[in-house]
Amino acid sequence: MPVPKSEFDRLPPCDFYTPEELLEDDQMYSVYEIARLLQGLDPDAEIEAETESVLLDWAIPWIMFNADDLVVAEPRTDDEPGYYGIAE
C-alpha cells in the first residue's frame, strides 16, 4: 500500500553507483556479491538470508539498468550463480 511522503523525515535522491564505481574491471561478481557491494559491504560478508533477500531487491534492478555496461558469464557448474563484470 502506498505511504505518504510526509511520513518520512528525509527523501534523498535515488542515486546508484555506476558499474565503474562499484566493480573492479578485471573481476566478475555474482548477483549476491553485487548486492553486498551496493550496500557498502565486503562481497564476502556473512549476512542473514532475510537480509540477502532484501539486498537482492536492489541488486537485480541495478544489473538490469546497467546491462549495457556489463558482461555476463554463465555458471561454471550447476550449483553456481552467473557472474557479471564491466564490459570492455
Rank of each mutant, 00 (worst) to 15 (best):
C14R: 05
E33Y: 01
M64C: 06
V31T: 09
G85L: 04
S6N: 09
E7K: 14
L38R: 05
D79F: 04
A87K: 15
K5G: 07
A87F: 03
T51M: 07
E7Q: 15
P19V: 03
G85T: 06
E88C: 06
E74D: 13
A67R: 15
L38W: 03
E50D: 12
E48F: 09
R76A: 06
M1D: 05
L23T: 12
A35W: 06
E52I: 00
L56W: 02
D57V: 11
E46P: 11
P61D: 00
L23P: 00
P13R: 04
M64G: 05
G40D: 07
D15Q: 14
Q27T: 15
D69M: 12
E21D: 12
I63Q: 01
M64N: 09
D26K: 02
L38F: 03
E21W: 03
W62C: 04
F8L: 09
D42P: 02
R76H: 00
P61F: 05
I34P: 00
D68L: 09
L38A: 02
L41D: 12
F8P: 02
V71P: 00
F8S: 02
D42G: 09
A67D: 07
I34T: 03
S6D: 09
E33P: 00
M28S: 11
P19G: 02
L41H: 15
D68F: 10
E24Y: 05
L70W: 00
L70I: 01
E21S: 07
T18R: 11
P4M: 03
R36Q: 13
I86Y: 01
E50I: 08
D26C: 04
Y17A: 12
M28K: 04
G85Q: 04
E21Q: 15
Q39A: 13
A35T: 04
Y83C: 03
L41T: 06
I60G: 01
P2V: 13
E48V: 13
A35S: 10
L55A: 06
P19W: 04
D69C: 13
A49P: 01
I34S: 00
L23W: 02
V54E: 12
R10E: 08
L56T: 03
